[in-house]
Amino acid sequence: MSIDSVFVHKMWDEHELSKMVKGGIPFPMLSDAGGKVGIVYGVYDDDAGVETRGRFIIDPEGILRGYEVLTPPVGRNVSETFRQIQAFQLVRNSKDTEATPSGWKPGKPTLKPGPDLVGKVWEAWKTDMAFD
């Protein structure tokens, strides 16, 4: 979503993005003229008249699970976004019986919060697990 019109979205997709992604962008490119949606999501930069790099993870109930907002010159880390979605999906599928500790990625152990884990996280999770 950006403040650009759908006409500009079409041109950008046809003339540039389709050269990076075969067949063009597969998802809808949303237009937010005037930044009305961006204001509500806290990403509209009034001074520049554009939206900053906001990224929102919304679950199937419409609950906001996570967000990140960057100023324009620095791009996102798509892998980290996918990792967070995978983590939220795992927690959801476990019906909140499991949690993903710092550095978790698919294949790494999760934690099972409860009375038995109090004071015992150091046994289940080591500092080097925070890193890849």
Binding site: M1, H9, W12, G38, V50, R55, I57, F88
Partner: peptide, 12 residues
């Protein structure tokens, strides 16, 4: 469905 909503400064 899971939704990823992304804002960005502008096309091009």
């Amino acid at each position: 469905k899971w939704v990823l909503l992304c804002f960005y400064p502008g096309d091009f």
